[in-house]
């Protein structure tokens, strides 16, 4: 029995090695094709977007539809996770996260709270500068979520209120994205085609909502994992 295990593992390892070889060979060959990529096209189109950071332009304008669907993925993960991690398997469109701090002790608490303010500042800066410099809604949201996780670790029960009250933040990004998309479609005739005169405002609204949803959902997902394992051994 034991031996059979080993030979099977050997075969699988060999297979993985062959796979790696094939992948690397394909990668080297593909790299040698030296395709130009899309950067020239992006640079040429950037002027029409009122955004200076090309990555933000791709995320919110050229390929904004990807980001819209991505908000759907986040929403889905949150819906299911928060339903399953509830006290009983009850309705959970509002997650009631019963947060217990896995680390107890005043030092952690202090540290978590000390971290909070600068992290939030960083997030605000990232959101604000994201249109012109590296950073943007996703990063700002992720940083806020990280801050929220630190706070949850430090403060215990109080944050459950925040998680429950803020549940409407979860679908906010998808909702704003859809509304904005339809609204600009009425003005310009094309879905997600931001009109010149309001491009910056529309995108800012989408960015703020995206950051808020990403922050809320990622923090809530952490609460869900804590909660699902809450009665752990």
């Amino acid at each position: 029995m034991k031996r059979r295990h080993h030979s099977l593992e050997g075969w699988l390892a060999l297979l993985a090695g062959l796979l790696a070889l094939g992948l690397v060979a394909a990668g080297v060959l593909a790299y040698q094709a030296d395709s130009p990529g899309l950067q020239d096209l992006v640079v040429r189109s950037l002027a029409q977007t009122r955004v200076d950071n090309p990555v933000t332009a791709v995320l919110l304008d050229f390929r904004g539809y990807d980001t819209l669907l991505e908000m759907g993925v986040l929403l889905l993960a949150w819906l299911t996770a928060s339903t399953l991690s509830g006290p009983s398997h009850e309705r959970l469109v509002r997650p009631s996260a019963r947060l217990e701090s896995p680390v107890d002790g005043s030092v952690d608490r202090m540290l978590a709270r000390l971290l909070l303010a600068p992290l939030l500042l960083v997030a605000a800066y990232l959101l604000w500068r994201g249109t012109d410099a590296p950073g943007g809604a996703l990063q700002a949201g992720a940083v806020v979520a990280a801050a929220a996780v630190a706070w949850q670790l430090g403060s215990g029960a109080e944050s459950s209120v925040t998680v429950r009250r803020g549940y409407w933040l979860a679908p906010a990004a998808l909702g704003v994205f859809l509304l904005a998309g339809v609204a600009v479609a009425v003005v310009t005739g094309t879905f997600l085609n931001h009109p010149q005169f309001a491009a910056r405002e529309v995108m800012m609204a989408i960015e703020v909502a995206t950051a808020a949803s990403v922050a809320y959902i990622l923090a809530a997902l952490f609460a869900c994992v804590l909660n699902a394992g809450g009665n752990g051994k």
């Binding site: 819209l68 409407w168 679908p171 998808l174 909702g175 859809l178 998309g181 479609a185 879905f191």
Partner: peptide, 17 residues
């Protein structure tokens, strides 16, 4: 075309809220 994607998504958001 976009509305075939947008309409169920809007309904989903409404159903969540």
């Amino acid at each position: 075309l976009p509305f075939a994607v947008v309409l169920p998504a809007v309904a989903a958001v409404a159903a969540v809220v």
